[in-house]
């Protein structure tokens, strides 16, 4: 099995889906001849032509809104938002339209659009090229929100998103694009949206995360094992709707839970994860639920020391894990 980068897995998923289904097409800024500013769509315009890899005018609400119209008609659009930070002009289309079409038409219409957006920091992107915006969308029934952390999951989940009959927001941590590599089968496979995945089995503490910070958790768990502490690591993969069963199971397994995400803490995905645990398995807990998240500031500053302060890293995660283990 070939070892490829996270971004190559994304490209592979799109290429395979476009070969499989002529209704799949891509629209977004610079997705054509440039192959995307992160190069996620590289080579696709050469293979599928400019009719199916559309360089759109620079207008996010139209990228999503036009995609929604095409999806409702029966196409399978993949709309690329260049940076998750720039999704804001399209929020009305995503929340008022895509998420509600099926419901408001009593099941008559539906909207199978996939909206891809690179999120997260650690790339000197400053306030507006670093944000984690997932929490804005994780209380919107009708939407599905996916954030894979490995190349294998990225390919399988993106293919599932494209085939899904409902709108899927697909967040890709941009730091993962070239940093994270992994084995990805050449053949066709899909992974279920809505299912979390145990990335490491353990017995002493449970760590729940997604995206880039999931890798920090795995690295920290590795070090912690040397100290004789065994960490169980759950990758949420889908942020909405949450895999409540897997969360409760993972929490109950060790009785000590740390939730880690780069997005700021208050009202973040971790808050809902903590609520699920509190509702479903409070009496299995041996310690208060702990969260390690980005600070509650508007966004990530540009200056390197400030960016570093904002970002999590394996050491910060290790510290929090150790503290929890010794509670």
């Amino acid at each position: 099995m070939a070892v490829i980068s996270f971004i190559d897995a994304i490209t592979m998923a799109m290429r395979e889906e476009m070969r499989r289904d002529p209704n799949v097409f891509i629209l977004g800024e610079d997705v054509g001849v440039r192959g995307g500013v992160f190069r996620a769509t590289v080579g696709l315009i050469e293979e599928f032509g400019e009719e199916r890899v559309i360089d759109t005018p620079l207008a996010e609400s139209a990228i999503v809104g036009v995609g929604i119209g095409a999806a409702a008609y029966g196409m399978r659009p993949i709309a690329e938002i260049q940076f998750a930070d720039f999704i804001m002009p399209a929020v009305n289309q995503i929340v008022s339209e895509a998420a509600k079409m099926r419901y408001r038409s009593n099941g008559d219409w539906f909207c199978p659009i996939t909206i891809r957006a690179p999120f997260g920091g650690g790339v000197h992107g400053a306030l507006y090229h670093s944000q984690s915006v997932e929490a804005l969308f994780t209380n919107v029934p009708g939407l599905k929100v996916v954030a894979p952390s490995t190349p294998y999951d990225a390919k399988g989940l993106l293919k599932a998103a494209i085939r899904d009959d409902d709108p899927v927001l697909f967040f890709e941590h941009k730091r993962c694009y070239r940093l994270i590599k992994g084995e990805v089968p050449e053949e066709d496979y899909v992974l279920p949206i809505g299912k979390a995945d145990v990335k490491r089995e353990g017995t002493d503490i449970t760590v729940i995360s997604y995206g880039l910070t999931l890798h920090f958790c795995l690295q920290a768990a590795e070090k912690l094992a040397e100290e004789g502490i065994s960490a169980h690591v759950l990758d949420l993969r889908t942020l909405y709707p949450l895999d409540k069963e897997a969360i409760a199971e993972a929490a109950a397994k060790t009785g000590k839970v740390l939730i880690v995400h780069e997005d700021n803490k208050e009202g973040g995905v971790g808050a809902e994860v903590a609520a699920v645990i509190a509702e479903q398995c409070l009496f299995d807990l041996d310690a208060p639920i702990k969260r390690l998240c980005g600070p509650d500031v508007p966004a990530m500053p540009y200056s390197p020391p400030m960016e570093k302060f904002f970002m999590l890293n394996p050491d910060k995660v290790l510290e929090a894990m150790r503290e929890l283990a010794h509670f």
């Binding site: 995609g67 095409a70 409702a72 029966g74 008022s96 219409w109």
Partner: peptide, 24 residues
């Protein structure tokens, strides 16, 4: 007839998307 909502003008890009699909 595509299902519509209350926030005004959101249907305009949808019409464009249906037309794009038709052209494709």
């Amino acid at each position: 007839i595509l299902t519509g909502s209350s926030p005004v003008t959101t249907q305009v890009p949808h019409a464009v998307g249906i037309a794009l699909a038709g052209k494709m």
